[in-house]
Structures are given as structure tokens and as C-alpha cells.
């Protein structure tokens, strides 16, 4: 018990001191399939991991929702589970992503709260037991770049095929483009990083127009 108590204490102390990176600054865009090589080439030049080349990833993401229990309760808690398909021994990742805050024009990026942690593969069972329902899932395959604290992912998003129990097979891309995301995880209040991101995004124009994409607006046709 004492161990748990002290862990809680140090956690709350960390929250108070505002050192937990729980804010995600995010810019999103896309690039057509035929130009992705050009973009990768440019990113290779701009980013830090020049020598090792881009890191590739092949992830499966499952999105669960936990609905409020009371009747008429509209509270929906989204939880995301992610696992690497190419590295089976890697731990799984559980992640909570909060509401998109678009903010006004002066704010260069979207800000959303984000908490993630490593977990084991039994997380799916655990969440199901908790009453979470799987909402949707997808496969993301692509490349990751780093530039200081910034993370840039260029990924192709695939829809799961009919064989849901065998991810990686019979998948189909959902569009003719790659999703490009530029993000930084930082403790809240570090808005200066957003400006750095805007400058970096500027360097990728006109290949990719990274911007603040409003989910509500993106929900068209």
C-alpha cells in the first residue's frame, strides 16, 4: 500500500509541477501517392535521423469507446490501443486522446490532451471486460521522422478487410494519399513549440499543406 501511495504522491507532484507531457500539438495534411517519394526525400533532408534513414512502422490501431453507464448519459470516452505488426515483441500502447482544440487563428496548431502508456496484449480483453466496445480499427503503415521534439509521420491508412482476425492480410487503402502528421507531446502551456511547428510545416509547402483540420468540418460528405 505504501508503495502505491508514494507512487500516487509522486504522480500528483509531477502533475502539479507540470512536467508531464500531456498535451499534443498537432498539424495534419496529406500527400498524393505519386509524390510521397518526393516528400520522404525532403523529410530525409530536413530531419534529424539522417544517417539511420527513416524509421518505418506498421501498426494496427483499435479504437474503443467507453459509454457512460447511466441512461441518457452521452459521455463517451475514447481509448486507442496500438500495436506494432512488424515488431511482435514490442509492448502495446494504450492512449487517450482528448478533444481537438482548434483555437483561434493566432494559434498555429491544434492542441489536444493526450496520455499514453505501454501495456501488454491483454489490454483488449481488459478493456472489453471494462465495458468498452470496439468502435473501429485500421492499419497504418509508413515512416516516422524526428526533428528535435517534433515527430513527423507519413503513413498510409488501410481499412481492415473481411478477415478481421488476421490483420495485415486483405487490407485496402482508404484513399489515394498518405496521411502526414506533425506532432509534439509537451507539458501544457508550452505554446512556443507550436510556432516551431508552423515554421517546419512552412518548409514542406507546397508538397504538403499541413494545417489544423477540424474534425467537425472534416466530417463531410
Amino acid at each position: 500500500m505504501t508503495g502505491l501511495g508514494s507512487a500516487m504522491d509522486s504522480l500528483s507532484a509531477a502533475v502539479k509541477c507540470n512536467i508531464i507531457p500531456n498535451q499534443e500539438y498537432l498539424l495534419q495534411g496529406s500527400v498524393l501517392d505519386q509524390y510521397v517519394e518526393v516528400l520522404l526525400h525532403r523529410l530525409r533532408g530536413l530531419c534529424d535521423n539522417v544517417d539511420s534513414g527513416p524509421e518505418s512502422f506498421h501498426d494496427h490501431e483499435l479504437c474503443f469507446t467507453l459509454r457512460g453507464s447511466g441512461p441518457g448519459s452521452s459521455m463517451v470516452l475514447p481509448l486507442r490501443v496500438r500495436r506494432a505488426l512488424d515488431v511482435p515483441e514490442a509492448p502495446w500502447q494504450l492512449r487517450y486522446v482528448g478533444q481537438h482544440e482548434i483555437g483561434d487563428k493566432n494559434r498555429p496548431t491544434v492542441v489536444r490532451s493526450s496520455i499514453d502508456m505501454a501495456c501488454s496484449s491483454t489490454i483488449v480483453e481488459f478493456l472489453t471486460e471494462l465495458g468498452c466496445r470496439m468502435d473501429f480499427e485500421y492499419i497504418a503503415r509508413g515512416y516516422m521522422f524526428r526533428k528535435g521534439r517534433m515527430k513527423i509521420t507519413v503513413s498510409k491508412i488501410f481499412k481492415m478487410g473481411s478477415m478481421t482476425n488476421k490483420p495485415g492480410e486483405s487490407v485496402e487503402p482508404i484513399s489515394q494519399s498518405y496521411l502526414v502528421e506533425l506532432s509534439v507531446l509537451a507539458p501544457s502551456g508550452q505554446d512556443a513549440i507550436a510556432e516551431d511547428m508552423r515554421v517546419f510545416a512552412e518548409q514542406l509547402k507546397p508538397l504538403v499543406e499541413l494545417g489544423k483540420i477540424d474534425y467537425k468540418r472534416a466530417n463531410f460528405p
Partner: peptide
Amino acid sequence: TAQQNSSTQDTHVLVAAVGMGKGLKM
């Protein structure tokens, strides 16, 4: 003449899919 390298529509499709599961749900 501003070569088209990306499509806004694709961006929205992708973002909506990853963010809200649009087009991916059961």
C-alpha cells in the same frame, strides 16, 4: 502553376478516418 501534390479531400477523408473512424466502422 501550383502543381497539385496533395488533395484537401483526401486529407479530410484520412483525418476523419483516423480521428473518428469514418469509413472504418463496422
